[in-house]
């Protein structure tokens, strides 16, 4: 289980017409009077890199919370790899291989960086009490493997030398990277990233994007990421989905979406013009 999955990665990479790994149909969420997500429908192709964009308050973060089990939708269906996921608890969805990060980073501050990483590894028998007591050797063996993987991944994100520091001592950008690296430790099939580039420096941002491309190409990992930087979206996404006021208003290749009237309206029509990357309103809690 240490080698990257191959059986699960048959997808022809850049083909946006590939079969969908994830589909959402009419997802609805109300908060009191606010219709935060209002019948969002979309599908995400397997092994694609799809961007989810939209003005502040469009409901993107809420949509993530709904499909990863953090909120219960008031209506609609979400299917990942042939399984309905709406209404399941977050940990089950994560174990299916659908893993998300948070807009407001959730570094586990009072734990060392390496523990943050090792925590995320799947199939650790030592996370079960009875294995801890009756099969300690299996747990220790797995720990060794996991530690190696964690250090490799930290290397990619320039965090290896901080491995033994408490995560709370990291800078904001480093925490963002740590959260990403941690999500990758779970060996996800489908990674949902809520504004992954926000607050990290451009060089590391590039590295991150390269790494995403490589994971997609080598392991067939699918990405859905919320992003405000149009440059990044246009250059790195195979497809772009646009949300506004809780609905999906456009969906297509980057150049198509860029020309779409409705998208321009959504961004410029409303009173609130969104400076790219300045979405500070977090609803991830």
């Amino acid at each position: 289980m240490t080698e990257p999955a191959t059986a699960a990665a048959p997808a022809p990479a850049a083909d946006t017409g590939a079969r969908a790994i994830f589909e959402a149909d009419g997802i609805v969420k109300r908060f009191g009077g606010i219709q935060a997500v209002d019948g969002a429908t979309m599908s995400v192709g397997e092994a694609s890199i799809t961007a989810l964009i939209g003005p502040n308050g469009a409901g993107k973060t809420t949509f993530f919370n709904l499909i990863t089990g953090f909120y219960r939708p008031d209506g609609g269906r979400a299917v990942f790899a042939g399984r309905e996921v709406q209404g399941r608890p977050p940990y089950m969805i994560a174990r299916l291989g659908m893993v998300r990060t948070f807009q407001i980073t959730k570094a586990l501050s009072a734990m060392p960086v390496i523990d943050n990483m090792m925590l995320a590894a799947p199939n650790q028998p030592g996370e079960r009490l009875r294995n801890v007591i009756f099969r300690p050797a299996a747990s220790i063996r797995r720990e060794r493997e996991v530690r190696e993987q964690a250090l490799e991944l930290l290397e990619v994100f320039n965090l290896a030398k901080l491995a033994d520091q408490y995560a709370g001592t990291l800078s904001g950008g480093q925490r963002k990277l740590l959260e990403l690296a941690r999500a990758l430790m779970t060996r996800p099939r489908f990674l949902l990233l809520d504004e992954p580039m926000a607050g990290i420096n451009p060089t590391l941002g590039r590295r991150l994007l390269d790494h995403m491309q490589r994971l997609r190409a080598e392991d067939g990992v699918t990405f859905l990421f919320i992003e405000h930087d149009m440059e990044v979206v246009m250059n790195h996404a195979d497809r772009v989905i646009v949300m506004a006021e809780g609905k999906v208003i456009a969906d297509g290749e980057p150049h198509e979406v860029r020309a779409d009237e409705r998208v321009i309206d959504a961004y410029l029509g409303g009173a609130k013009v969104t400076p790219p990357g300045a979405d500070g309103e977090g609803a991830s809690e």
């Binding site: 699960a8 399941r88 291989g97 799947p122 779970t186």
Partner: peptide, 20 residues
Amino acid sequence: MEAGTLGAGQERSLGERLAN
């Protein structure tokens, strides 16, 4: 990763039924 979904699979049946 396959193992990952498998490992989860064994537990899912009971946990999922409870959640349902």
